[in-house]
């Protein structure tokens, strides 16, 4: 356990001394800022039923396939390519500690980016409270729900990135793989949002459609969380997914340690 924190600390340090971290963060916040700008500009056209944090959280959620590969693609793939993973594994450090340490650092960075993105509504709220006060940007119920959903979904998405990075020596391949896996996840969420399992044609079809639909109801879950309704099912789903992918990454790293 001690070594897990040593690796976590070292990974955070490595992220902080890498220019790529700041470049990725800058572009992410730039895109989020523009999205927020357009959201403010078009708010009068919307029905206004959903709290504004939903729009921001949804923006962050759909941005994950583009930002998470930058955070995770380097972690294990680069260590394997340069051979430093070999010396790391030769120390009395369990493989899970290496994987979880790297995941932890990327996850904390992801959370800090999400936190920084929340700065847009916060700044708008404090400086233009008379104009946007009715939007309840800083309503703690909405903030907590939306933030919690981003936290748990981010844990799983970053774990997917770490898993992809464990599969290859190439950062580029790891990044593309993460992007693809997360895009598939978001596509399924979109598909099951558009095609609610309402009219099954057979028992088997119903079962499969409903089972998958229950897993990929991310859009609906986010809506509920953003309104302050906390459902434990997606929390369990994302946390177990994170554990599963980190477990796979550990197994792959152990299996390929002698290569």
């Amino acid at each position: 356990m001690r070594n897990l924190f040593v690796i976590l600390r070292q990974e955070i340090f490595s992220l902080l001394i890498s220019p790529a971290t700041f470049i990725a963060g800058f572009y992410f916040l730039l895109v989020m800022g523009l999205m927020f700008w357009f959201y403010l500009g078009s708010y009068h056209l919307s029905t206004g039923r959903m709290p504004p944090i939903f729009e921001l959280a949804f923006g962050l959620f759909i941005m994950t396939p583009t930002i998470i590969p930058f955070l995770t693609m380097r972690s294990l793939a680069e260590e394997r390519r340069t051979g430093t993973l070999e010396t790391l594994l030769a120390t009395p450090t369990p493989t899970y500690a290496i994987v979880v340490g790297k995941w932890g650092a990327a996850y904390l960075y992801y959370l800090s980016l999400c936190g920084l993105a929340l700065g847009f509504p916060a700044v708008t709220h404090y400086f233009f409270e008379d104009k946007v006060g009715e939007l309840r940007f800083m309503d703690l119920t909405f903030l907590f729900g939306g933030g919690l959903y981003l936290m748990v979904s981010g844990a799983a998405f970053v774990a997917i990135g770490i898993f992809a990075s464990s599969l290859t020596r190439s950062q580029l391949v790891a990044g593309m793989l993460t992007f693809t896996l997360l895009l598939i996840q978001l596509s399924l969420i979109y598909y099951f949002h558009e095609n609610q399992p309402a009219a099954p044609t057979s028992m088997l079809g119903e079962t499969i459609h409903q089972s998958l639909g229950a897993f990929f109801r991310g859009y609906d879950h986010l809506r509920e969380f953003s309104r302050g309704i906390i459902d434990t099912r997606p929390i369990v789903y994302y946390l177990t997914s994170a554990a599963l992918f980190l477990g796979f990454a550990t197994l792959v790293t152990e299996h390929r340690s002698g290569e």
Binding site: S18, G83, T84, E86, T87, A90, T91, P92
Partner: peptide
């Protein structure tokens, strides 16, 4: 252990690297 080709993290300073490895080794 020092493997063939001696892989090292190129972005760390010597002192930082040795401290990190020392910590990992207890």
């Amino acid at each position: 252990y020092m493997p063939e080709n001696n892989p090292l993290p190129l972005d760390l300073r010597v002192y930082e690297y040795l401290r990190f490895r020392g910590k990992l080794k207890g």
